[in-house]
Design a protein around this nucleic acid. Sequence first.
DNA 1: CCCCGGATCGAACGTCGTTCTAGTATCGAA
DNA 2: TTCGATACTAGAACGACGTTCGATCCGGGG
Lengths: 238, 238
Amino acid sequence: MTGPRTLPTQGAPRGRKRASHSLEAVLGAAVALLDEAGAPALTFRALAARLGTGVGTIYWYVSNKDELLDRATDHAIGGVLALVEGQPQSDDPIADLRAMAIALFDAIVDRPWLSAYFMRNTDVQGNSLRLYEKLGQPTLRLDLTPRQRFHAVSAITSVVVGTAADLGAEIPPEILDGTMDRDAYLARFAEQWRSLDSAEFPFVQEIVDEFAGHDDRDQFLAALELTLSGLRLQAGAG
Amino acid sequence: MTGPRTLPTQGAPRGRKRASHSLEAVLGAAVALLDEAGAPALTFRALAARLGTGVGTIYWYVSNKDELLDRATDHAIGGVLALVEGQPQSDDPIADLRAMAIALFDAIVDRPWLSAYFMRNTDVQGNSLRLYEKLGQPTLRLDLTPRQRFHAVSAITSVVVGTAADLGAEIPPEILDGTMDRDAYLARFAEQWRSLDSAEFPFVQEIVDEFAGHDDRDQFLAALELTLSGLRLQAGAG
DNA sequence: CCCCGGATCGAACGTCGTTCTAGTATCGAA
DNA sequence: TTCGATACTAGAACGACGTTCGATCCGGGG
């Protein structure tokens, strides 16, 4: 009456007899909607239409939109987790950290809607905890205190989420429609910046060319590298 | 017909004759609503009620909710900018960078709604550009390439926004009502984490005590320090 | 005096999340 | 076979939201 008993956080849908729509189907359709047109496209009515059911049916599997979003996010993070778990372990823990952070970043670039809901996922169990564990494991091979390890992982996730969110934010609708390409968009900004008073805005003048031609991935990699080199320094001085 | 001609991004409201509600008043009320009860509290009806007007009036000053949010955010960032500009410049550029980042972080902690709208503010002009400039100026005193300076500032803002967003997300309604205090909330998580299989979750087991008693500000300061020490290393090796 | 344009107002529209009631299919027990 | 409980489906309805629109007010220049 309040919903299906439990959901397997992993694995195939176990013996549900003849349900035409499982929770898995709902989540899959939700993720598809999010992928196709972002967060505003995920409405109960659109989801019901896609599944060929009524809105009431969705509420049988999920108690409200927050839970739908949480479960859909966890569903998507499952994919990232699989990727990260498939990565081979190297001799250098920091290199492993880097590889995982990049995999996570790429996943968010693929699904920009993830960044908005990534941080508010307070699930104790689920895939995000498992991902957190995976991200933390390389720090166990570093000469750090538990506190330093804790801070290191949160620093790395901050960099990933922070830059990815920044990235997802800078995409106004004009550019998604193909009306205007990214370079022209950046160039318009750059031009306005160049016209600023260079006595009042010396820094902006200094970096405007870099901004005009910047690559988001390079920007992320540079930020990540700063954190990682700080971490390497910390581990070496232990 | 489409709104007031322009808005002074700074300064007193100039000679508007007898408007009972200026844009400044609208923005002030909007920020007040956001401060009192967060983003969901800011609705056109609530705002109109607070101003003692109709909803239509607000649309005279602002063309839609996105613009309202952008302007309100910029309004709030003006306060941070004033704080940052009031800080004295020291001999150490990195220390200045640190101080600014901390001021920004504290401002977001004060106004958690800022984190959500901080990144999507793509205004070319306005206070966020000025703040960006201020954040970048210390890097001019560092021995770096323009590209490195550009990356350094975006790395720092990523850390600030990333951790602040993470922080704002981990506040479920129970804790804001005073129903449950933060320590008990963290302890509940910690307990569930402790019951996990330690072979499968070695890292979580390692840091669970740190997590249970962690301070958000310390977490941010640690992440910031990693980036700054990486930056110092980069500047020294120039 | 009238009129014109800046400024104000609130009813109304469409969409959203959510609730509720009615309904159908399946199965074990009587 | 009948009955009721359980699992699930369906869509009308409600209130709140963002937004639009025509009506209205009001001061200053003709």
